[in-house]
Design a protein around this nucleic acid. Structure first.
Length: 815
RNA sequence: GGGGAAGUGUCGGAAUUGGCAGACGAGCAUGACUUAGGAUCAUGUGCCGCAAGGCGUAGGAGUUCGAGUCUCCUCUUCCCCACCA
């Protein structure tokens, strides 16, 4: 009786040996073709949880499988370490965020190692390490030089009591989470990246193999719309401007524009407000400044607005229309002004109803009889009440009116994007300092490259005062102007942490380079990433920013490609046993550490893979774990306890070899398409087959058994790295199974010799006949038609036609 | 309101191009074994029916010799975005 399978001793033993032997260190000078497999790095929140385990097992399986297929695989890991949770934890515990973060990294690294993945830890990247974030600063300077980083006003959540900026998650029901004061939106000067310069290029996903839903979401996010920017005249110039510009995608409806709505923040509002309207307008603006994101979430909230006393001219109709302000108009989209066409826009319709404005129809719905509309008609139709354009189909009218407006010099066809420039300033202290200096004489001055990195101070005090520790840290704040040498002050804002994830994968190729973010030859050797895996929640933000940044780095001449990730895969999300997202407050958290301790890393990883398709996710259950456990023990047993060898009959040896090669084929195909659950099902079937053969008592052919047994070990190596290594050693092979080649199948042996021919009558299955795989059509038809059950089923009915699917099915259709 | 994904036994799920619905695993049932091991082995397990047979992939229609798969409508669930002019 062989020794029993004991994951605890085996897993620890091999993990130590692999590490000592540097088995998984990727070499730059390896002659094999490269394969860069990247898994999104974890945020250093504390413990490794299911959300981390679920993506890692399958990607490690891929990495090992690629290695066995002859690739020089780069499979790095790191830690996303900047961000608000560290600051909050620091305030709560009265320690520096660094301490908290590095302690978490220590623990998480240990947990990741315990998983037994082939991460190359020599390339670990930690984003809060000055050796990493100095290059964030360097890139920022380069972008500033290129005009891609600029400063502008932008609203932020502001707590008037604490005098601080709040992140969205710090605003609870419109109030500051600390002091409960009502939060207002306040304009602050902040830094932006000009991502809109790349909007059109970012819409182009050709040449990359990404899931269609992600591409669609990015396209919607960028939100390109074609329309016309057209101006409405003002009688008297206001602040030097004598018109109001609006953007519209429905220029065909302009004859129906009966009012104008400006965003409350629009620059012309003050000048256009008449004295008698001052009070009401001021009140409305103040109220809308208190609109928080949360309040704005309700789209079907009543549309409100205030007339500001002035009019502007619809140049096409020649009529003057009233000007309102309304908070449903956003200053950040289009021109911050909207022409109100109540008949053909649902919001404008509601607005006109509420304020008693006219609703003239200018695009007639099909079959319209001239009656007033009960709701806005937004579809195409025939132009009416539109001067010389009457009678045209509205699509054609769009074209004609646009031409007319351009000819008159009232506006032009243009493109508008939903995408806005990327606001990267964060009024936080646990992030990359923005390397800028403000000097009274020289204005905004960049920190000279040789002075990088601008280091986050170690001794900043984190106290719940609501004020940024950097702004209060004299040593950090005070600096001499690099240009004139006079006293100046540093920028105290830090960068959005998406800056880190923009390029961390580039740093992996050359993680310790002190001179550059990375050496060009190493970048060219490893990049772009061949396969990226991660959660779908990053479909737009991270994945769009990283694409943008890669194009910027390309335009800087540092790399020769513009797309960072050739293939993308989104794994699903793992939920608690109750189907809810796991969280401590719900009490449904299952600790992966405990499960690993109990069953071993191999078993736990395999179970997560077996639960269902990787892109699906779903509720975790421990029930099925036992199934994997049993299978692993059966595999252990069948490998180590041999059958009785001898002169086997031809049939059984042939069947054994067929099963072996068919399994290799199926497993290879499953892993290729990330079908880990079906891959494991195939391996279970193969294991059962081998056990039955061994226990049948019949003699088994020695070479065929060895082929089957070794194939089984090799096929489970990517998914059960420890168990396979142990079995490989115990069957007398030389270390390491993870350096062996993936088994190849013989197509002839893998092919089945006999198939089941399904015979139907009028689409209903009536008979199944075993036939040779290569059966000729005529023979199959004969067999089917002459089968007694079919004759019976036909019951004398006349055969109209016979459908034949080669090697599969005969369908007899009666009249 | 817009966009995306999905709905198959008791449960997780399987089903290359439309071609045997329910692989594999869990659970359950019966039996064997002899143990106290998260045992193992055998058999069974979609529903109705004694049976022959019929019915079955959220519901309804359609295309087709044939639909879990394709088309349309309805319902349900999950995710993302959200007044985009």
């Amino acid at each position: 009786m062989a020794e029993k399978y004991n994951p605890r001793t085996i897993e620890q033993k091999w993990q130590q040996r692999w590490e000592a032997d540097e088995l998984y260190v990727a070499r730059d000078d390896d002659p094999r073709p490269k394969y860069y497999l990247l898994t999104m790095l974890p945020y250093t929140s504390g413990d490794l949880h299911f959300g981390h385990y679920y993506p890692m097992g399958p990607s490690d399986t891929l990495a090992r499988w690629k290695t066995m297929n002859g690739y020089n695989v780069l499979f790095p890991m790191g830690f996303d370490a900047f961000g608000l949770p560290a600051e909050n934890a620091a305030i709560q515990r009265g320690i520096h965020p660094r301490e908290w973060t590095y302690a978490n990294i220590e623990r998480m690294r240990g947990q990741l190692k315990r998983m037994g993945a082939m991460f190359d830890w020599t390339r670990e990247v930690v984003t809060c390490d000055p050796e990493f974030y100095r290059w964030n600063q360097w890139f920022f300077l380069k972008m500033f030089e290129r005009g891609l980083a600029y400063r502008a006003m932008a609203p932020a959540n502001w707590c008037p009591q604490d005098k601080t900026v709040l992140a969205n998650e710090q605003v609870i029901d419109g109030r500051c989470e600390r002091c409960g004061t009502e939060v207002i939106r306040r304009e602050l000067e902040q830094w932006f990246f000009r991502i809109t310069d790349y909007a059109d290029e970012l819409l182009d996903h050709s040449g990359i193999d990404w899931p269609q839903p992600v591409i669609t979401m990015q396209r919607n996010w960028i939100g390109r719309s074609e329309g016309v920017e057209v101006s409405f005249g003002l009688d008297a110039p206001v602040g030097g401007e004598d018109e109001i510009r609006v953007f519209t995608t429905r220029i065909d409806t302009i004859y129906g524009a009966t009012f104008m709505v400006l965003a409350p923040e629009h620059r012309l509002v003050a000048g256009l407000t008449t004295p008698d309207r001052q009070q009401e307008v001021r009140a409305y603006i103040e109220q809308s400044s208190k609109q928080t994101e949360i309040e704005r979430l309700s789209a079907d909230r009543e549309k409100t607005g205030v007339f500001i006393g002035s009019h502007c001219r619809n140049r096409l109709t020649g009529e003057d229309i009233p000007i309102y302000i309304g908070d449903y108009v956003l200053s950040s989209y289009g021109t911050g002004a909207v022409m109100g066409v109540p008949a053909h826009d649902a919001r404008d319709f509601a607005f006109a109803k509420k304020y008693g404005l006219a609703i003239p129809v200018v695009v007639a719905p099909p079959g319209w009889d001239g009656e007033p509309l009960k709701e806005a008609y937004t579809g195409p139709g025939t132009m009416v009440n539109s001067g010389s354009f009457d009678g045209l189909p509205s699509e054609e009218g769009k074209q004609k009116i646009a031409e007319h407006i351009e000819a008159q010099g009232w506006g032009k066809s243009t493109v508008s994007y939903r995408l806005r420039d990327w606001l990267i300033s964060r009024q936080r202290s646990w992030g990359t300092p923005i390397p800028m200096i403000y000097c009274e004489t020289d204005g905004i001055v960049a920190v000279p490259e040789e002075d990088l990195p601008v280091i986050l101070p170690d001794d900043a005090e984190f106290k719940p005062t609501g004020e940024s520790p950097l702004a209060r840290h004299e040593g950090f704040l005070r600096v001499d102007c690099p240009k004139c040498g006079r006293p100046a002050r540093r920028e105290t804002d830090t960068m959005d942490t998406f800056m880190d994830s923009n390029w961390y994968f580039m740093r992996y190729v050359d993680p310790h380079n002190p001179e550059r973010p990375f050496a060009r030859d190493k970048a060219e050797m490893w990049m772009p990433v061949d396969q990226y895996t991660g959660g779908a929640e990053h479909a737009v933000m991270h994945l769009l920013y990283a694409r943008f940044f890669t194009k910027v780095v390309r335009d800087m001449g540092l790399i020769g490609f513009g797309e960072p990730f050739k293939r993308l895969f989104n794994q699903g999300q793992i939920l608690g046993p109750d189907g809810q997202r796991m969280s401590k407050s719900r009490g449904n958290v299952v600790s992966p550490d405990k499960e690993v301790e109990r069953w071993g890393a191999d078993c736990f990883r395999a179970h997560l893979m077996f639960m269902g398709p990787w892109d699906q996710g779903g509720p975790f259950n421990t029930a099925g774990l036992a199934g994997i456990w049993r299978w692993m023990n059966r595999a252990w047993g069948v490998v180590l306890e041999e059958p009785g060898y001898g002169d086997a009959d031809d049939g059984s040896t042939k069947e054994l070899r067929h099963q072996t090669h068919a399994t290799i084929k199926a497993v290879s195909e499953d892993i290729e398409r990330f079908g880990f659950n079906t891959m494991l099902a195939r391996l279970m079937e193969f294991t059962t087959f081998l056990i039955h053969l061994r226990d049948s008592g019949k003699p088994v052919d020695y070479p065929a058994w060895l082929e089957a047994r070794d194939s089984l070990i090799l096929l489970i190596a990517p998914s059960l790295p420890h168990l396979s290594e142990e079995l490989w050693e115990r069957t007398g092979h030389s270390y390491s199974v993870h350096q062996r080649s993936w088994p190849q199948y013989d197509a002839a042996l893998a092919a089945t010799e006999e198939v089941t021919l399904v015979v139907q009558v009028n689409g209903k299955v009536r008979e199944r006949i075993q036939v040779p795989a290569g059966i000729a059509e005529a023979e199959a038809r004969d067999l089917a038609l002459n089968s007694p059950r079919i004759k019976e089923g036909l019951d004398g009915a006349e055969v109209a036609r016979v459908v034949y699917v080669p090697g599969r099915l005969v369908n007899v259709v009666t009249k």
